[in-house]
Measured scan of single mutants.
Amino acid sequence: GLEHMADEEKLPPGWEKRMSRSSGRVYYFNHITNASQWERPSG
């Protein structure tokens, strides 16, 4: 619920959580730099 939404908002600017269609794993994508990574971004 609300706790999940608050957790999402802690991601650094530009980052969003996405799911890989090929593997079904969650990864993180930065739409500003077009960077993507499996680890949760910090800072």
Results as ranks from 00 to 15, higher is better:
18 R>Q: 03
41 P>W: 02
4 H>T: 14
27 Y>M: 02
9 E>T: 08
9 E>C: 15
35 A>H: 15
11 L>T: 02
13 P>F: 13
14 G>T: 01
37 Q>E: 02
23 S>K: 08
23 S>Q: 09
39 E>A: 08
43 G>S: 13
24 G>R: 08
2 L>N: 13
2 L>Q: 13
37 Q>N: 02
25 R>I: 05
25 R>M: 06
42 S>R: 10
43 G>L: 12
37 Q>A: 04
22 S>H: 14
34 N>F: 10
43 G>Q: 10
12 P>N: 01
32 I>W: 07
24 G>H: 07
16 E>S: 08
40 R>N: 06
30 N>P: 00
34 N>Q: 14
23 S>H: 09
24 G>C: 13
28 Y>N: 00
7 D>V: 09
28 Y>G: 00
30 N>V: 03
16 E>M: 06
27 Y>L: 03
43 G>M: 14
38 W>A: 05
26 V>M: 06
14 G>D: 04
15 W>V: 01
23 S>C: 09
19 M>K: 12
42 S>E: 10
33 T>S: 06
2 L>F: 13
15 W>L: 00
33 T>N: 05
42 S>Q: 13
28 Y>T: 00
33 T>V: 03
30 N>S: 05
19 M>V: 15
18 R>T: 03
35 A>N: 07
6 A>Y: 11
9 E>K: 06
37 Q>I: 04
8 E>V: 09
41 P>I: 02
23 S>W: 06
29 F>I: 05
8 E>F: 04
24 G>L: 06
31 H>D: 03
4 H>F: 12
21 R>E: 14
12 P>F: 01
26 V>I: 11
22 S>R: 15
14 G>E: 04
24 G>W: 03
31 H>G: 05
23 S>T: 14
13 P>I: 08
15 W>G: 00
29 F>G: 01
12 P>M: 02
7 D>H: 09
30 N>D: 02
25 R>Y: 04
32 I>Y: 10
28 Y>P: 00
40 R>F: 10
38 W>S: 05
34 N>T: 06
42 S>V: 12
15 W>T: 01
38 W>T: 05
16 E>H: 08
38 W>N: 04
6 A>P: 12
8 E>W: 03
8 E>A: 10
24 G>E: 04
38 W>Q: 03
10 K>R: 12
22 S>P: 12
14 G>F: 06
21 R>G: 11
17 K>G: 02
30 N>E: 01
40 R>T: 07
2 L>C: 15
37 Q>D: 01
5 M>T: 12
18 R>D: 00
14 G>R: 01
35 A>L: 13
41 P>T: 01
5 M>L: 11
36 S>T: 12
17 K>I: 09
11 L>S: 01
4 H>A: 12
32 I>V: 09
2 L>W: 14
15 W>P: 00
28 Y>V: 00
13 P>E: 09
39 E>I: 07
25 R>N: 04
36 S>W: 15
14 G>P: 10
14 G>Q: 04
37 Q>F: 03
2 L>H: 14
10 K>M: 11
1 G>Q: 13
3 E>F: 03
25 R>F: 04
3 E>H: 12
9 E>Y: 08
15 W>R: 01
36 S>E: 06
30 N>A: 01
36 S>G: 05
41 P>E: 01
15 W>H: 00
3 E>S: 12
24 G>Y: 04
19 M>G: 03
3 E>K: 08
35 A>V: 15
11 L>K: 09
32 I>F: 13
39 E>L: 07
17 K>R: 13
12 P>G: 04
28 Y>H: 00
42 S>T: 15
38 W>D: 04
38 W>H: 04
5 M>C: 15
10 K>I: 13
1 G>K: 12
29 F>L: 03
38 W>L: 07
33 T>W: 05
5 M>P: 10
5 M>F: 11
43 G>D: 12
10 K>W: 14
30 N>R: 01
40 R>Q: 05
4 H>W: 10
15 W>Q: 00
22 S>I: 14
1 G>L: 13
34 N>K: 15
32 I>N: 08
33 T>P: 01
32 I>E: 08
13 P>Y: 13
38 W>F: 08
32 I>D: 06
11 L>Q: 06
1 G>E: 13
35 A>Q: 14
3 E>T: 12
6 A>H: 12
24 G>I: 03
5 M>A: 12
1 G>A: 13
2 L>E: 11
14 G>S: 03
2 L>M: 13
7 D>R: 07
3 E>W: 03
27 Y>A: 00
34 N>A: 06
17 K>S: 05
1 G>D: 12
28 Y>Q: 00
42 S>P: 08
9 E>I: 07
35 A>M: 14
3 E>P: 13
37 Q>T: 05
19 M>N: 06
19 M>T: 14
42 S>D: 10
19 M>D: 03
27 Y>K: 01
37 Q>L: 04
9 E>D: 12
16 E>T: 08
21 R>Q: 14
6 A>T: 11
33 T>D: 04
27 Y>T: 01
25 R>D: 03
33 T>A: 03
4 H>L: 11
16 E>L: 06
41 P>M: 01
7 D>P: 10
6 A>D: 13
15 W>D: 00
40 R>P: 07
5 M>I: 13
17 K>W: 03
16 E>V: 11
24 G>N: 08
31 H>W: 15
43 G>W: 15
40 R>K: 09
35 A>F: 09
10 K>H: 11
22 S>G: 11
21 R>L: 15
6 A>V: 12
33 T>H: 04
24 G>K: 08
13 P>A: 10
7 D>T: 10
6 A>E: 13
43 G>I: 14
34 N>R: 14
33 T>I: 04
15 W>A: 00
4 H>C: 15
25 R>H: 05
29 F>T: 02
37 Q>H: 03
10 K>P: 15
3 E>M: 08
17 K>Y: 04
36 S>N: 04
8 E>H: 09
7 D>Y: 07
39 E>D: 09
26 V>N: 04
